[in-house]
Simulated scan of single mutants.
Amino acid sequence: MAEHYSSFDRKGTRWLLQRLTAVFLIGVLAFHFMLLHFVNHAADVTFNGTTMRMQQLGYFLTMIAFLVTATFHGVNGVYNALINQGLEGTQRSVVKWALVAASVALVVQGVRVAFAMTNGGLF
């Protein structure tokens, strides 16, 4: 029988954060589907409606948390999958910092879009 190998140290912070972000994402995705697919049907979701939702502080903060959490969860998963495939040394360092840079760029752009979607009406 093959040995099980994982780059995640089950006592490590990244392992714990991967699990916690997964739980958070499941909850936020359930909220998203309920609100935007069952309460408001796809045809009823408009730019103006999105702007109105983003002007509500709770919704705005939830979407920012969703952005940051999903980015971390996805990038952390990709990074660990690459480590499991044998990435090491200089390549590992280059990939790690490239993923960090891409993550920061994604979060910064996402926050910019979120603020733009408030139409200046936040708070």
Rank of each mutant, 00 (worst) to 15 (best):
A2M: 03
E3I: 13
E3W: 02
E3M: 14
H4S: 09
H4D: 00
Y5L: 03
S6L: 00
S7L: 01
D9Q: 08
G12L: 08
W15P: 01
W15L: 09
W15G: 06
L16K: 12
L16Q: 13
L16G: 04
L17N: 05
L17S: 11
Q18S: 13
Q18G: 08
L20C: 02
T21N: 10
V23H: 11
L25P: 07
L25G: 04
I26F: 12
I26L: 14
G27R: 02
V28L: 08
L29D: 14
L29R: 07
A30C: 03
F33W: 10
F33I: 13
L36V: 02
L36E: 13
F38A: 12
H41L: 10
H41W: 03
D44K: 03
D44V: 05
D44W: 00
D44S: 08
D44Y: 02
D44T: 06
T46S: 07
T46H: 06
T46W: 00
T46I: 02
F47T: 05
G49Q: 04
G49C: 01
G49N: 01
M52K: 01
M52A: 13
R53C: 04
R53V: 09
M54V: 03
M54S: 09
Q56W: 15
L57Q: 03
F60G: 01
L61Q: 06
L61N: 11
L61F: 09
T62C: 11
T62A: 13
M63P: 12
M63C: 15
A65V: 07
T69W: 04
T69L: 06
T71S: 13
T71A: 15
H73E: 11
G74L: 12
V75N: 09
N76R: 10
N76Q: 13
N76P: 11
G77L: 06
Y79T: 02
Y79E: 06
N80Q: 10
N80K: 15
N80S: 11
A81C: 14
I83W: 04
N84K: 12
Q85R: 15
Q85L: 12
G86I: 10
L87A: 04
L87M: 08
T90I: 11
R92I: 03
V94N: 05
V94R: 14
V95R: 02
K96G: 04
K96M: 06
K96L: 08
W97E: 00
A98H: 04
V100P: 00
A101V: 01
A102F: 01
S103F: 07
A105E: 00
A105P: 03
A105S: 05
L106H: 04
L106R: 00
A114T: 01
A116V: 15
A116S: 10
A116W: 12
M117K: 03
M117V: 00
T118P: 02
N119D: 15
G120I: 08
G120T: 00
G121L: 12
